[in-house]
C-alpha cells in the first residue's frame, strides 16, 4: 500500500549528547516539541515498520567496501555504536523486519543496484532520530544507507531514482510503511567549523522540497555543495531520496539555525502524501 508517512529530520549527535551545553533553551525545546509531534504523527499513521534513509558515518561501512546504497535485512540491529555516555543514548537492540526488507530489496533492485547487510550497528545517524521518534525502540526499523561521507558519491539524480524505487517497492508491499530521511542540510560536523550553518542555503534547499522542484533539487554539484554547505551538505541525498519516495511536497514543521551546539540547522518536516 502507499506510504502511510514520509518525513525528514536532523540527526546531529549533539541533539542528545550535547543537550546540556545548549544556550538557547527556547529553541532547543521548540525542536524537541516538533520531534514529539513527529513521533505522534508516525504513531497515528499506523505504521507497522519504518524505513530510515540515513547517511551513516563510518560505523558499518568504510572505504574498503563502500556501497552507494545499502539496505539492512537483519532481524535486529544494535545501537548506538558510539560510547553511550558520549551520545547519551543507552545501548539497545532494535527490531528489524527481515522479510519485508528482503521484498523491498528485491523490488528496488529492478531499477537500482542495491547492496544489503544482514548485520547493522546503528550510529547517531539513526539512533538520534529514534531516540525522539520511537523512544521505546519498539517499531521495527529497516535501515537504508546512502554513502554521503566518502567520495566518490552517488549523483543526486541516482538518489532520486533510488527514492522513487523505494517508494514503489513500499507501495507494492501490504504493510503500512513509514519512511524517514535523516541528514543535515548545510553543516561542517566534527571539524573546526562545527556550529557553522548556512541558513540561506538551507532555506533555499527546503524551498525546493516544499515546491517539489525536482530539477532545482538535482542541480546542485558536489563542488558547489561543499563550498556553500560543507561536507555535511552531501547528506542532502537522504532528503532527496525521501522526497522521491513520497512524491509530494514537503511541509516544513520546524527549522532553526539557532542551535549551533547541535552543529546543524535543525529540521523537522513531513511530506504531503495526498497529492
Amino acid at each position: 500500500m502507499p506510504l502511510v508517512y514520509a518525513g525528514v529530520t536532523s540527526h546531529g549527535p549533539g541533539m542528545t549528547g550535547r543537550a546540556h551545553l545548549v544556550e538557547n533553551l527556547e529553541a532547543r525545546d521548540q525542536l524537541y516539541a516538533a520531534l514529539a509531534d513527529q513521533s505522534q504523527a508516525i504513531k497515528e499513521s499506523g505504521a507497522q515498520v519504518m524505513v530510515v534513509v540515513a547517511a551513516e558515518h563510518f560505523a558499518n561501512f568504510f572505504m574498503d567496501n563502500m556501497p552507494a546504497y545499502c539496505i539492512g535485512l537483519g532481524e535486529r540491529h544494535q545501537g548506538p555504536i558510539e560510547d553511550p555516555e558520549w551520545l547519551r543514548i543507552p545501548k539497545v537492540a532494535i527490531p528489524g523486519s527481515p522479510d519485508l526488507a528482503r521484498r523491498l530489496a528485491t523490488d528496488i533492485m529492478q531499477t537500482v543496484d542495491l547492496a544489503y547487510a544482514q548485520e547493522w550497528k546503528f550510529d547517531h545517524g539513526i539512533m538520534v532520530p529514534l531516540h525522539f521518534l520511537t523512544p521505546e525502540f519498539d517499531l521495527p526499523i529497516i535501515p537504508v544507507n546512502i554513502n554521503c561521507q566518502g567520495p566518490p558519491l552517488t549523483p543526486l539524480s541516482r538518489a532520486w531514482a533510488f527514492g522513487e524505487a523505494l517508494g514503489k517497492a513500499c507501495a507494492n508491499a501490504d504493510e503500512r510503511i513509514a519512511v524517514l530521511g535523516t541528514g543535515g542540510i548545510s553543516h561542517w560536523p566534527a571539524t573546526p567549523d562545527s556550529g557553522k550553518i548556512n541558513e540561506p542555503w538551507d532555506r533555499e534547499f527546503l524551498r525546493r522540497l516544499q515546491q517539489q522542484d525536482k530539477q532545482a533539487l538535482l542541480s546542485y554539484t558536489d563542488e558547489e555543495t561543499y563550498l556553500e554547505a560543507g561536507q555535511g551538505g552531501f547528506e542532502i541525498r537522504t532528503y532527496i531520496a525521501t522526497a522521491a519516495a513520497a512524491q509530494g511536497p514537503l511541509e516544513l514543521d520546524f527549522y532553526t539555525a539557532e542551535l549551533p551546539i547541535f552543529a546543524v540547522g535543525c529540521t523537522v518536516g513531513h511530506f504531503n502524501l495526498n497529492t
Binding site: L21, H57, F58, E82, D83, P189, A190, T191, P192, S194
Partner: peptide, 24 residues
Amino acid sequence: NGQILMHYAAFLNIEWFDYLESMR
C-alpha cells in the same frame, strides 16, 4: 575525517570544545 576523529577524541577523554580547539 571528523566523523572518525571525534570518536577517537572522545576515546582519549577529550571534551568537545577541547577537541575543536585541538584541530584549530
